[in-house]
């Protein structure tokens, strides 16, 4: 039982960091970015190729270094940010709305195909493995106590990211990102450089995603294309939506709720013999349904972002146009 709780808390903390990164792009900047899971994957892949040592035939992958884990994490985050910068430079220049989403969908698909089919990069469909208990031998931990250590590490990192996002949320940068979401023209009229601001937010989000990916690699000790299954991706978007886009406490609540939904919704279903995918598929249907129902009936989420209302509105309500 305690092993179950440890794994749930570790996963939850990593998932929370992912959701907070997505919130910068989708919640504050207002762009529905489908490439986001690509940055998580880059963080995980880069952490692995930098720590697991040279490839042994028949495996093939780039780098193959044995750097200390924290250094590998830093480089992994920087790589995710670099790719995010390239995608952002292309996609944020003129595109908004569904055109932005379509291009980022394309970007993530290209990343997926490259990682899955181009073997010399990350060993194609086999993926990478072999990152066992990073930093464990620094403290002389055995397998069980390492699980507790990793949980503590992920929870502390989650708390730090949350603190950072909380400070950022009320900062001038956080406010400026939101003005872009509400009205780009007005923001431009007040002298904001829209492209630069959006790009900054996008690269920051990609970096947070890459960081979550680096922790994910330590938790899974491996990563391959099947770890990017659509279920994982859509749960992430559902969590941010259900909790409340733009409100970091909402995002945390959403992660908690979707964690419960994913884990518990199918708990009382009987196992169907010879049909192992059925429970997973049913989860998928439920997650999709939650997504659609929330978009229709409560698109602002359970804990909506607080709106700043002018305490002395000058316009009479009747003169406003709909």
């Amino acid at each position: 039982m305690s092993a179950y709780i440890v794994s749930i808390l570790t996963e939850g903390a990593i998932f929370g960091i992912m959701a907070l990164g997505l919130n910068v792009i989708w919640g504050w900047s207002g762009d529905f970015d489908l490439a986001y899971y690509g940055y998580i994957a880059i963080g995980a892949y880069m952490t692995l190729v930098l720590t697991i040592g040279p490839a042994v035939a028949p495996a093939h992958y780039i780098l193959g270094l044995q750097l200390p884990y924290p250094l590998a994490v830093v480089i992994a985050v920087l790589s995710a940010m670099a790719v995010g910068l390239v995608v952002g430079l292309i996609a944020l220049r003129h595109l908004r709305g569904i055109y932005f989403s379509i291009v980022t969908l394309g970007a993530v698909y290209v990343m997926y195909v490259l990682a899955g089919q181009y073997v010399p990069l990350f060993d194609g469909y086999n993926g990478l493995s072999g990152l066992f208990d990073p930093m464990g031998d620094w403290f002389g931990l055995d397998y069980l106590s390492y699980q507790w250590f990793l949980m503590g590490l992920c929870l502390v990192m989650f708390a730090l990211v949350l603190l950072f996002m909380w400070r950022l949320s009320g900062s001038r940068f956080g406010m400026a990102l939101r003005t872009l979401r509400e009205d780009e023209r007005a923001a431009a009229a007040f002298g904001r450089d829209i492209y630069r601001l959006k790009l900054k937010g996008y690269v920051l989000g990609a970096g947070v995603g890459g960081f979550a990916g680096a922790l994910f690699a330590a938790y899974l000790s491996a990563f391959n294309p099947s770890a990017w299954s659509p279920v994982e991706i859509i749960v992430l978007y559902a969590a941010v939506l259900v909790g409340g886009r733009g409100n970091i406490w909402g995002v945390v609540l959403g992660v908690f709720i979707m964690g419960l939904v994913v884990q518990e919704s199918t708990r009382f279903l009987p196992e169907v013999p010879g049909h192992p995918q059925i429970v997973l598929a049913l989860r998928g249907v439920i997650i999709g349904l939650v997504l659609v129902l929330f978009l229709r009936f409560r698109p602002q989420g359970l804990l909506p972002e607080r709106r700043y209302v002018d305490p002395e509105p000058k316009l009479e309500p009747a003169t406003r146009t709909a």
Binding site: F32, I234, I278, V285, L289, L291, V292, L295
Partner: peptide, 15 residues
């Protein structure tokens, strides 16, 4: 986004 959710639901129902 909503139709993305629908697509996901139909795929899983078929599974």
């Amino acid at each position: 986004i909503a139709t993305l959710g629908v697509s996901f639901m139909i795929q899983n129902t078929l599974v």
